[in-house]
Design a binder for these strands. Structure first.
Lengths: 221, 221
DNA sequence: GTCTATATCCTGATAGAC
DNA sequence: GTCTATCAGGATATAGAC
């Protein structure tokens, strides 16, 4: 169901790149930007995820990308624009995953399992981009925050929609649909906070566990 | 059950103070530090929660506390020490709440409802301190991080313990105890990320909803 | 214990040569 | 498009008077 997400080797570059690229391909899959711009985005993603937006310096990003500090500004107008690009692409990718999982499943139960499982797995496999998406949001400038907020609302809406369908078919019993959607997303989002490749759990195991927990949370008694 | 948490007026100072004070009292309840040190901690908590640790300046903290920048250093050796004090006290308080809720409940089901409900409510009522505790953790220096890590493990342990009890009594059916404990805590922790007083949900409503969701997640079929 | 003043270093971003 | 050099301001923290 979520097989459009490739399973890349545990290299940070490939990992973040896979999360940024809609087709899961190589550099040209990011498509609308140059090779150097991609390198800068990958460098910034590493740095932001590791140290946070404000603790990351432009020199840090530049050196990771193999450029001088000035070289970054040919491609991005500011450090905040770089955060915005990562945030926007990451949110889009996460939303696309959820929508694809919802559409591919035959029943609301299967859809919910695939969505929460897949979303949780994504936040583990791509925990660097996941952290940026979920935890650096408030450091965007207001106009950029507003744009990303639309994507966040779409994500909430997809989950709530599946819950409503499940209630309609009688598969689910949900007292508070938006509240439950929020709690389900919280479980998955929080994975990005605690997951690292050093941890004993695997993204696949997380997908399995969290998908089942989601179904337990809403299934009719 | 969680009535040891006072319901303060919606003033940020009182709110953070209540979360810092073991007895829920006034300034002297924080006890081991001077009045001015408390004022600085409250100012720092406001600033860290609002803008994040690295985006907060020492001038920012000082002016919120009504001091000159130099005035802060009489009471705290560095900005990071201030973060550590807030983090340590906040973690202790959160752990104490969980332990009290676990001990006061007659059954594992009641205990889990009270723990997850109360922990969620705490992350709403004290969302400022909650954000610091949960999301500024990585900005601590290694030795301080280690000390706080002990408190975090105690929190995990209390929840896992109640799950084990519930499995033993037959009330719960849990495949993966540490994984489920983690997911339950994730739901509650993530409240601090999205909650603000502007949001439509109330801390009391969150307590009710999340307590019930927790029970649904683990109860035997 | 608090202040004013400041040391010292670092920050995001730009100018202009190549 | 990339570099070296640098600007202008801001950062944490300290010195020393009161």
């Amino acid at each position: 169901m979520l097989s459009t997400v490739p399973s890349p080797p545990p290299l940070s570059e490939t990992d973040v790149l896979a999360a940024l690229a809609p087709e899961g391909g190589r550099h040209e899959a990011v498509g609308d930007v140059t090779d150097t711009a991609v390198r800068i985005m990958l460098a910034a993603a590493d740095a932001f995820a590791e140290r946070g937006f404000h603790a990351t310096t432009t020199r840090d990003i530049a050196s990771r990308a193999g450029l001088s500090p000035a070289g970054v500004y040919v491609h991005f107008a500011s450090k905040e624009v770089l955060l915005f690009e990562l945030s926007r692409r990451g949110h889009s990718r996460a939303r696309d995953l959820l929508v694809a999982a919802a559409q591919a499943a035959p029943t609301p139960t299967d859809a919910l399992r695939a969505m929460v499982g897949g979303f949780s797995r994504w936040h583990a496999e791509h925990y660097e981009l996941g952290r940026i998406v979920q935890f650096e949001f408030r450091h965007l400038r207001p106009e950029h925050r507003d744009e990303v907020l639309h994507l966040r609302k779409e994500i909430d809406h997809v989950v709530a929609g599946v819950l409503r369908e499940g209630v309609a078919t009688g598969e689910f019993e949900v007292v508070d649909i938006p509240g439950t959607a929020l709690a389900l997303l919280s479980m998955a989002i929080d994975v990005a906070r605690w997951y690292t490749p050093d941890v004993r759990r695997t993204p696949e195991g997380i997908e399995e566990t969290y998908g089942e927990l989601a179904v337990r949370l809403v299934r009719a008694a």
